[in-house]
Every structure is written in C-alpha cells, then in structure tokens.
C-alpha cells in the first residue's frame, strides 16, 4: 500500500481536516486504493509533452479598471456565523 496512516495525517493537516481514530484506518485503506489506482499515470510517456492547464487557447482576457457599486454590507454579512459592528467575527480563541 502506497499510503500510510502517517501520510494521511500529514495531508489532513494541510487540508485542515481531521479523522476520528476509529475512521482513519478505513479511510487510509480507501484513500490508498485511489492513490494506487492513479499510479498508473506513471506508465505514460510524457517526455516533451506540455501540460494543459486550460483546454482552450484563450489568452489575455481582462477588464478595464472601473469601479462599480459594492454589495450592501447587510448582504455581505447576512450569512456570517458571527458578526459585530459591521465586522465578521471570530470569538476569542486561545492562540
């Protein structure tokens, strides 16, 4: 198996995710099966092949520097889990 529990913990840390102790075993197994599957890409000879980040060769699409009305603040804050005086708020944490 290509992926260890430690690998999973490291990647989870980067992704700001966490797995319960009882779940991590199962997750690692399934995750590893996917990683093992995509390993088959290494069979492909890509010497001299350019990557395709965008499927169409469109370039230089930009807009002019013009200001438009912003969103009403009430709307901006409407979905905020917590807010105070027009700010988004995060309650006190230890660090």
């Amino acid at each position: 198996m290509s992926i260890s529990k430690e690998d999973v913990k490291h990647v989870a840390r980067l992704a700001r995710l966490d797995f319960d102790k009882e779940d991590i075993e199962d997750f690692t197994k399934k995750f590893a099966s996917v990683v093992d599957y995509v390993e088959k890409l290494s069979e492909v000879d890509t010497e001299g092949v350019e990557p395709t980040y965008h499927v169409h060769p469109i370039k230089n699409v930009m807009r002019e520097d013009k200001v438009c009305k912003s969103l009403d603040r009430k709307e901006s804050l409407r979905n905020a889990p917590d807010k105070e005086n027009g700010y988004f708020k995060i309650p006190r944490v230890l660090d």
């Binding site: 990647v11 995509v38 890509t46 395709t52």
Partner: peptide, 20 residues
C-alpha cells in the same frame, strides 16, 4: 503537496494533453 506535484498533478496535466 510538496514532492508530489510533478509526479501527480503535473504528470496528469501532461496526460491530459495526450488525451485531448
């Protein structure tokens, strides 16, 4: 992630070129 980008992400983007 660091150390795997070329092996996975960039490799797949190249294979994408071939598939296209």
């Amino acid at each position: 992630s660091s150390g795997y980008y070329d092996e996975y992400y960039n490799k797949a983007q190249k294979v994408r070129t071939l598939i296209k």
